[in-house]
C-alpha cells in the first residue's frame, strides 16, 4: 500500500460528506423527522360527552397485550353501567405492538408519535388514563407541524386508512 493512501481515503470521505446535511440533531431543542407510520406512545381519546376517558372498561386491551402492560380496574356506575376506576399503562414494559389499539372496540386507544419517554424515575413510566389523554391531545396539536415532514408513502397510507 503506497505511503499516504490512508490520508487520501480519509480526505475522500470527508469531501463526500461535506456537502450533506448533518444526520444528528440537537435533541431536545430539535427533533428528527418522524414517519407517518411511526409507532409512539399509546394515547387515549377524550370522550366528548363526559369529558373523561372514552374507555368503557371492557378489558380487551388488557387481554390482547402480550406484555402485561395494561391494567383496567372497573366498578359499577350509579346508573348501572361500567365505570373505569383506574386505567394503568406501564410504558416501561410496552413493546409498541399496538395490539391494544387493534382490540379496542370503541377506539379509545389511539396511536401517537410521542416517543419522549425519557425519565429519571421509572415510576414516571407508569401512567394513568388522564396522562394518556394528555399525550394524545398534545400529539394531535403537534400533528400540524409534522404534516410537512411526512415521508413518501404517506399518501398511500392515508388511502389505506381512510379509504
Amino acid at each position: 500500500m503506497p505511503l499516504g493512501s490512508g490520508v487520501m481515503k480519509g480526505l475522500k470521505t470527508m469531501l463526500m460528506v461535506t456537502g450533506r446535511k448533518p444526520a444528528t440533531v440537537l435533541y431536545p431543542e430539535q427533533l428528527r423527522d418522524i414517519s407517518y407510520r411511526f409507532r409512539g406512545q399509546v394515547g387515549m381519546r377524550r370522550d366528548e360527552v363526559t369529558g373523561g376517558m372514552t374507555c368503557v372498561g371492557c378489558g380487551l386491551c388488557e387481554t390482547a397485550c402480550p406484555n402485561d402492560v395494561i391494567r383496567v380496574d372497573t366498578s359499577e356506575n350509579e346508573d348501572g353501567t361500567r365505570f373505569v376506576d383506574r386505567y394503568l399503562f406501564d410504558v416501561g414494559r410496552c413493546v409498541f405492538c399496538y395490539f391494544c389499539i387493534e382490540a379496542c372496540p370503541v377506539d379509545a386507544l389511539q396511536r401517537t408519535h410521542d416517543f419522549h419517554l425519557i425519565t429519571d424515575d421509572r415510576r414516571g413510566l407508569l401512567i394513568d388514563g388522564e396522562k394518556m389523554i394528555e399525550i394524545y391531545e398534545h400529539d394531535q396539536a403537534n400533528r400540524e407541524a409534522e404534516q410537512k415532514n411526512i415521508g413518501p408513502g404517506a399518501a398511500l397510507a392515508n388511502w389505506f386508512e381512510r379509504g
Binding site: G57, C58, G59, E62, T63, T74, S75, E76, G80, T81, R82, F83
Partner: peptide, 12 residues
C-alpha cells in the same frame, strides 16, 4: 350478580 357486576371480565 350485583356484588360481582363489572368487577372483572370472566377470562381475566
Amino acid at each position: 350478580s350485583r356484588p360481582f357486576k363489572h368487577s372483572a371480565r370472566s377470562w381475566q
